[in-house]
């Protein structure tokens, strides 16, 4: 059921050769699993690390300023200028679902990053079938129920949402609009047989508005809800009868409801339920299987512990 991927080709091509070699040496020695790498962090003059199964593993190597600049150029496919807008707000869309966090010194006028000092390359994973439990909650033929999926960062919301979108748009043949604000949800190889329309690089609010007005979707899927404009557009989409499946950062329903915008959506009855996800701890090792707890909208969430499904 679970399909693992190796380090994506673009990541291997972009990394300095000694960093790639070091990762594979550690993988060969059994100190990390290449297919389980979530993040690769490069810092000029400081240790490079990989985050694997929630642990930060130092590689014992650092990168030079020139190596980091070369890495940035390659991640931008040789056209750094074409990525200026996203670099300025802290990330690069490297394609194939790879988002790279950028850290550096912003120019005084705020229009460009003058010196990039570290990169956080987030490695996407395809885990087919990981959304099974969530799918049972949100899909009851022929209707799709709107739900909000929450978890702390790094647990796997994006991986799960990607699988969910591919399943709904694929085997269940629903018209899905996927709003991929930072170019990390959409993986071409995963969506090639689906009915998904993908808005890449659009803000969530703008994406929801476009989807509602012009794309006639049966469900809108987007990552990491947050601001009040997004809430306004979601209310508008809901009034048009379009369900939304979204994610948010929170470790519990109580924490989720402490966010004013999410609270507003809850009070307007936008979501039929809230699904929290976490990774299972099997024999002391965090595994890639997700557990899911569900709180229906009509339960008094503050008084009940979520039930596991």
């Amino acid at each position: 059921m679970i399909e693992k991927t190796l380090l994506p080709t673009i990541v291997e091509v972009c990394l300095p050769a000694h960093i790639t070699a070091r990762i594979y040496t550690l993988a060969e020695n059994g100190r990390l699993h290449a297919a389980e790498i979530n993040e690769i962090r490069l810092r000029t003059g400081r240790p490079a690390t990989v985050t694997c199964e929630g642990k930060n593993i130092p590689l014992g190597e650092s990168v030079t300023v020139a190596e980091l600049a070369e890495c940035v150029t390659r991640l931008c496919h040789g056209s750094v200028y074409a990525h200026g807008d996203t670099i300025r707000v802290g990330y690069i869309q490297a394609g194939d679902g790879i988002r790279v966090g950028v850290c550096g010194t912003l120019a005084a006028d705020g229009r460009a990053v003058r010196e990039i000092t570290s990169l956080n390359i987030r490695v996407p994973h395809i885990i087919r079938g990981v959304c099974d439990r969530i799918l049972r909650l949100c899909y009851e033929a022929p209707s799709i129920k709107p739900i909000l999926i929450y978890s702390p960062p790094g647990v796997g919301k994006t991986t799960l949402l990607r699988d969910l979108a591919a399943r709904l748009g694929g085997e269940l043949t629903r018209r899905v609009v996927l709003i991929d604000t930072r170019g990390e949800l959409y993986l071409p190889e995963m969506f090639k047989e689906t009915l998904c329309d993908v808005l890449i690089g659009y803000g969530r609010a703008a994406g929801i508005e476009i989807a509602t007005r012009t794309l006639s979707p049966e469900v809108i899927i987007c990552d990491e809800l947050g601001d009040s404009e997004e809430v306004r557009q979601i209310l508008s989409a809901a009034s048009a009868g379009i369900p939304i499946i979204a994610t948010a950062h929170a470790s519990s329903v109580t924490e989720l409801m402490a966010k004013p915008n999410i609270r507003m959506l809850h009070e307007n009855g936008i979501f039929r339920g809230y699904a929290g996800i976490s990774r299972e701890n099997v024999n002391g090792m965090l595994s890639r299987c997700f557990t899911c707890s569900y709180t229906p909208h009509d339960s008094a969430f503050s008084e009940h512990e979520p039930c596991c499904v």
């Binding site: 931008c76 040789g78 750094v80 200028y81 074409a82 200026g84 229009r111 460009a112």
Partner: peptide, 10 residues
């Protein structure tokens, strides 16, 4: 040097 600069510098 091509492709390594910002939109203003390129």
């Amino acid at each position: 040097g091509l492709g390594r600069h910002s939109a203003e510098e390129e």
